[in-house]
Amino acid sequence: MTFKLIINGKTLKGETTTEAVDAATAEKVLKQYANDNGIDGEWTYDDATKTFTVTE
């Protein structure tokens, strides 16, 4: 399955996707991606669209 991350950061905005077997696995990968890029904020997840959003 494809999961999307929408980034609403102070210095970085955009989106990325990852392939994962489930939402929990995708969340780990996407949170690591955000952490690697210095993004720390509030996370939400929409199961209907398989989209995570992080807002700083």
Score class of each variant (00 low, 15 high):
M1Q: 12
M1K: 11
M1D: 09
M1I: 14
T2C: 11
T2K: 11
T2V: 13
T2D: 05
T2A: 07
T2H: 09
T2N: 07
T2P: 05
T2M: 13
T2I: 15
F3C: 01
F3I: 02
F3M: 01
F3H: 03
F3W: 09
F3Y: 14
K4H: 10
K4T: 15
K4N: 05
K4E: 03
L5I: 04
L5R: 00
L5P: 01
I6G: 02
I6T: 05
I6M: 07
I6F: 07
I6N: 04
I6K: 07
I7Q: 02
I7F: 14
I7E: 01
I7R: 02
I7H: 04
I7K: 02
N8V: 14
N8D: 08
N8F: 13
N8Q: 10
N8Y: 13
G9Y: 09
G9M: 15
G9S: 11
K10W: 13
K10Q: 12
K10N: 11
K10Y: 11
K10I: 15
K10F: 14
K10H: 12
T11P: 04
T11F: 14
T11E: 10
T11Y: 14
T11N: 13
L12D: 06
L12G: 10
L12F: 15
L12I: 14
K13W: 10
K13G: 06
K13P: 06
G14H: 14
G14D: 09
G14N: 08
E15R: 06
E15F: 14
E15I: 14
E15P: 04
E15H: 10
T16L: 14
T16Y: 15
T16H: 15
T16W: 15
T16K: 13
T16A: 11
T17G: 04
T17Q: 11
T17I: 08
T17E: 10
T17P: 02
T18Y: 09
T18L: 11
T18D: 02
T18M: 10
T18P: 01
T18H: 06
E19K: 13
E19V: 15
E19W: 15
E19Y: 15
E19M: 14
E19F: 15
A20V: 04
A20T: 05
A20Y: 03
A20L: 03
V21C: 11
V21L: 13
V21F: 14
V21T: 12
V21M: 14
V21I: 13
D22E: 04
D22A: 03
D22F: 03
D22K: 03
D22W: 03
A23K: 14
A23H: 09
A23E: 07
A24S: 11
A24W: 13
A24G: 09
A24E: 13
T25G: 07
T25D: 08
A26M: 02
A26K: 00
A26R: 00
E27R: 10
E27S: 07
E27C: 13
K28F: 10
K28N: 07
K28W: 10
K28M: 13
K28Q: 13
K28A: 12
K28L: 12
K28C: 07
K28T: 10
K28S: 09
V29Y: 13
V29A: 10
V29I: 15
V29P: 02
L30F: 15
L30K: 00
L30A: 02
K31E: 03
K31H: 08
K31D: 02
K31W: 08
K31C: 05
K31Q: 07
Q32R: 13
Q32N: 08
Q32S: 08
Q32G: 07
Q32I: 09
Y33G: 02
Y33L: 05
Y33R: 04
Y33V: 05
Y33K: 03
A34Q: 02
A34G: 03
A34P: 01
A34L: 06
A34E: 00
A34S: 05
A34D: 00
A34K: 02
A34F: 02
N35F: 15
N35D: 12
N35A: 15
N35G: 09
N35P: 01
D36V: 09
D36I: 08
D36N: 10
D36T: 08
D36A: 12
D36W: 08
D36S: 11
N37F: 14
N37L: 15
N37C: 11
N37A: 13
N37V: 14
G38K: 07
G38M: 07
G38N: 12
G38T: 04
I39Q: 02
I39R: 02
I39P: 01
I39G: 02
D40R: 14
D40K: 14
D40V: 15
G41I: 02
G41C: 02
G41W: 07
G41P: 01
G41Q: 01
G41D: 02
E42I: 15
E42D: 10
E42V: 15
E42Y: 12
E42Q: 11
E42H: 12
E42N: 09
W43Q: 00
W43D: 00
W43L: 03
T44D: 08
T44Q: 10
T44E: 09
Y45T: 01
Y45S: 01
Y45D: 01
Y45I: 01
Y45G: 00
D46A: 04
D46S: 06
D46Q: 05
D47F: 09
D47P: 13
D47Y: 09
D47V: 11
D47Q: 10
D47N: 10
A48V: 12
A48G: 10
A48K: 12
A48E: 13
T49F: 05
T49M: 07
T49E: 06
T49C: 04
T49K: 07
K50F: 11
K50M: 09
K50V: 03
K50I: 03
T51G: 02
T51E: 04
T51D: 01
F52G: 00
F52D: 00
F52I: 01
F52C: 01
T53K: 05
T53Y: 10
T53D: 02
V54C: 06
V54R: 00
V54F: 04
T55H: 07
T55G: 04
T55Y: 10
T55F: 08
T55C: 06
E56M: 11
E56I: 13
E56C: 08
E56D: 09
